[in-house]
């Protein structure tokens, strides 16, 4: 099975996000890591490839730095990578990103393209279904379980009160949630081996896209302004000295819950 996985380089979740010029996320001087959600995608992809005797290609769009996310996936066991990088891509919205990723993978003959359900910094989960739409193939979202039988893909997709079971034929896009596997750590051998693996670099011209379709220029949603949200006031914080149960119960009485 020819497995593709998207991986995104995002600010370290332990850092505080900041907005800079043009209300864009400041990415300089901040530790970047592979999106944790994508680690599940890479792991799922590797397991599928191992089971079916295939291989995994990882795809990332971003500045040169995004190579680190690709390298990490390669050291986990992926075979090769594609880095989509071009100054004109800066400021892309979800659709611009989806256009670039779709263009980069469309002639690669993949059976399954695995993505995270939503990225740590984008957090809108728009890219994967949009990639699928642009490629004209189905997407199966929020998979908490994924099964493959020949060309048949079956997933358990989360719903508000349980899950539904979906079935489709390859090629498909699948978005995976955390908890469907335990991502492996790169081994020393994996890290050494990754050095000799190839990463293909593609720019806008190679993708056959025009500047107006992506990047800042192509973004159809504009940020007109950013304001602080009204914050809650912190109340009282007390150490437990054995009577906090009563304290809470008294509060519940005041609030007429009891």
């Amino acid at each position: 099975m020819n497995v593709f996985v998207t991986v995104k380089q995002v600010p370290d979740p332990n850092s505080t996000p900041k907005l800079g010029d043009g209300n864009r996320l400041v990415r300089e001087g901040i530790e970047l890591v592979m999106d944790q959600g994508d680690e599940y995608g890479v792991e799922e992809g590797l397991q599928l490839a191992e089971k079916t005797g295939g291989q995994v290609t990882v795809v990332s769009m971003g500045p040169e730095k995004a190579n680190d996310a690709i390298r990490k996936a390669l050291s986990m066991g992926a075979e090769s990578g594609i880095l989509i990088s071009d100054p004109a891509l800066a400021g892309s919205d979800a659709l611009g990103t989806a256009r670039a990723i779709a263009a980069a993978v469309k002639d690669k003959g993949f059976d399954i393209l695995i993505c995270g359900t939503e990225s740590y910094d984008g957090s809108t989960g728009m890219v994967p279904p949009q990639v699928a739409e642009l490629l004209g193939i189905p997407h199966l979202s929020f998979a908490k379980k994924l099964e493959v039988d020949g060309t048949t893909i079956k997933v358990q997709r989360q719903t508000a009160d349980g899950f539904i079971t979906l079935e489709a034929q390859t090629p498909v896009v699948v978005t995976v949630t955390g908890g469907l596997n335990e991502p492996r750590y790169p081994t020393l051998k994996g890290i050494m081996g990754a050095k000799s693996k190839t990463v293909e670099n593609v720019d806008l011209a190679a993708l056959g896209l025009e500047a107006g379709q992506v990047g800042e220029a192509g973004a159809l949603v504009k940020v007109a302004g950013v304001e602080p949200a009204p914050e809650r006031q912190a109340g009282e914080v007390i150490p437990d000295e054995g009577s906090s149960g009563e304290r809470v119960a008294a509060m519940l009485v005041d609030l007429k819950v009891l």
Binding site: A234, G235, V237, I238, D240
Partner: peptide, 11 residues
Amino acid sequence: FKLSDLGIIGD
């Protein structure tokens, strides 16, 4: 705790 009306430091 920053957004709690009542925070209890304990196990």
